[in-house]
Simulated assay, not measured.
Amino acid sequence: MSSPSSDRPVAASGTFALGGDLPVHRLGYGAMQLTGPGVWGEPEDPDEAIRVLRRAVELGVTFIDTADSYGPFVSERLIREALHPYADDLVIATKGGLTRSGPDDWRPVGRPEYLRQQVELSLRHLGLERIDLYQLHRVDPRVPLADQLGELKLLQDEGKIRHIGVSEVSVEQLKEARGHAEIVSVQNLYNLADRGAEDVLAYAEAENIAFIPWYPMATGRLARPGGPLDAAAKQHEATAAQLALSWLLRRSPVMLPIPGTSRVAHLEENLRAASLALTDEEFAALSDAV
C-alpha cells in the first residue's frame, strides 16, 4: 500500500496556516491559465481544465488561487464544476478589484459597492457561503484604501469572508492596510529572476503573513545553457521551472508559490518540485546569481 505522502506528494512542500487557523500545503495552484487567450473567455479545452483541477487536488494541492477577473468568472465557475462540493481541507482563494473589457485589459476599481457586488458574485460562482481568503486584486488609487478594505472588513464581519489579503502592494501600503483590517496574505510579483518585492517578503516573513508570489516560475537568463539553474537542473534531473519553485519554497517559510497551467502533464511536472530539495550550496548559488 502506498503511503499518504506518495499519494499526495504536494504535502512534502510543508504547510502554512493562513491567519494562524487555516493550514494549507505551501505549493498551491494558480487558476488564471484555465481561461482563454489573454485571460479572456472560455478555455480551448474545458475538459482538460476540469482534469487539471481534479488532478491538482489528487496530488495534494489544498490551496487554489483564482480571481473574478479571470475570464471574467470563467475560472471560478470551472473550479466549482470540477471540485464542488469541496474537500474539507481545500482552500479556494479569490480576488476582486480588477475589471475587464477584453483580452489582456485590466483596470482597477475599488469602490466599496463594486467590491461588495463582486464578493456576492464570487460566492455564487464558487458555490460558497464564505470565501476563505478574499484578496484585493489591486489598490485603486482613486479610492481611499480605508474605504476599499473597510468594505471587505464589513463583509468579513457579515461572515462572507474568512480572511483578507492584498495584492501588488508596497511595504507602506501593506502597513496601512493592516490598520484597516487584519491582513493574512500578500500577493506580489516575485520569482528567482525578479526579486523586486524583497522588502515586502521580508516584512511578510517578520509578521507571519503569507507571501504568494505570482509569476513564480520565471527564470530569465539563469536557465541559459551552462548557467547556475541549468547546472542544478541537470544534477537533479529536473526542469528549470521545478528548480525555480524549489528555490521559492526554500527561500521563506511564508512563501506559497502558485504555479499555473492548463495541462495535466505540465501540472504534474510543476508539482514534483514539492519533493525536490536543494543543497545549501545550490540554494546559495541560485540566490547569488541575480
Score class of each variant (00 low, 15 high):
Val10Tyr: 03
Ala11Ser: 14
Ala17Arg: 14
Leu18Gly: 01
Gly19Thr: 03
Val24Cys: 00
His25Arg: 14
Met32Pro: 00
Gln33Ala: 14
Leu34Asp: 01
Leu34Asn: 00
Thr35Gln: 05
Ala49Leu: 10
Arg55Tyr: 06
Val57Met: 08
Glu58His: 10
Gly60Phe: 05
Val61Lys: 00
Thr62Asp: 04
Thr66His: 04
Leu78Thr: 04
Leu83Gln: 06
Ala87Trp: 03
Ala87Asn: 10
Ala87Gly: 12
Gly96Lys: 04
Arg100Ser: 09
Ser101Arg: 15
Trp106Arg: 08
Val109Ala: 09
Val109Glu: 14
Gly110Thr: 07
Pro112Arg: 05
Leu121Ser: 12
His125Phe: 13
Leu126Phe: 06
Leu128Met: 14
Leu128Trp: 06
Ile131Glu: 00
His137Cys: 07
Pro141Ala: 10
Pro141Lys: 13
Glu151Lys: 07
Leu154Ala: 14
Gln173Thr: 15
Ala177His: 05
Gly179Arg: 14
His180Ser: 08
Ala181Val: 15
Glu182Gln: 10
Ile183Lys: 05
Ser185Leu: 06
Gln187Ile: 06
Glu207Ala: 15
Met217Leu: 12
Arg221His: 11
Ala223Thr: 09
Asp230Tyr: 07
Ala231Trp: 09
Leu243Ala: 07
Leu245Cys: 05
Arg251Gln: 09
Arg251Tyr: 03
Ser252Val: 13
Ile258Glu: 01
Pro259Trp: 09
Thr261Met: 08
Ala274Arg: 02
